[in-house]
Amino acid sequence: MGDLDLSFFDWALVQNFLLKGLVFSVELTIVAMIGGIFFGTLLALMRLSSHKWLQVPAALYVNTMRSVPLVMVILWFFLLIPFLTGKPLGAEWSAVITFTAFEAAYYSEIMRAGIQSVARGQVYAGFALGLDYSQTMRLIVLPQAFRNMLPVLLTQTIILFQDTSLVYAIGAYDLLRGFTNAGRNFNRPVESFLLATLVYFVICFSLSMLVKRLQKKIAIVR
């Protein structure tokens, strides 16, 4: 086993290889989180509705997404789009759409639990005041569901950030790709992967510590 040499890791490397990747990873995480929570909430409302024609497709979608490995969804979507439209979409856009669609399934399960955690009486109280279904959901149930589920939603987002490294499979330039290219460039692949692991760990670990503190705060307010 050769000695580890980390001397290639300097500010220029961060600027030339990593920054672009980090920015994309973070962008992808944020866009997929916002989109995923939005569509996930819609899916959750569909699953909780009393209409079969809304329930069934939503359940089918969520359960399918949750039964397929993410990397396959990424690959399928990436390969399928040029086949269907005749034009390739580009790895970055393809990643954004796939992650939003995939994460929506997971966020929807969280939001469903959140909506169910709000007492039925709250819905009655909204209706009794003359609010209609959509107002009752928007103004009364969802804000409470969202607050109750905030730590879980954020934890899911940390997992999402880790999963963004899978866009590697379609060649998008994310943080992991940045490390890989740097490793190749300086002929230090092992050190580069080591650093990549460390960076992902530090980011995710500190975020999950923050979520833990938030969780305590929310528990006290409630």
Binding site: A119, G121, A125, F127, G130, Q144
Partner: peptide, 14 residues
């Protein structure tokens, strides 16, 4: 319903 006031057993304030 808006014209019928209702007070619930468990308050149900928001």
């Amino acid at each position: 319903r808006a014209r019928v006031g209702m007070v619930f057993q468990n308050f149900e304030l928001f």
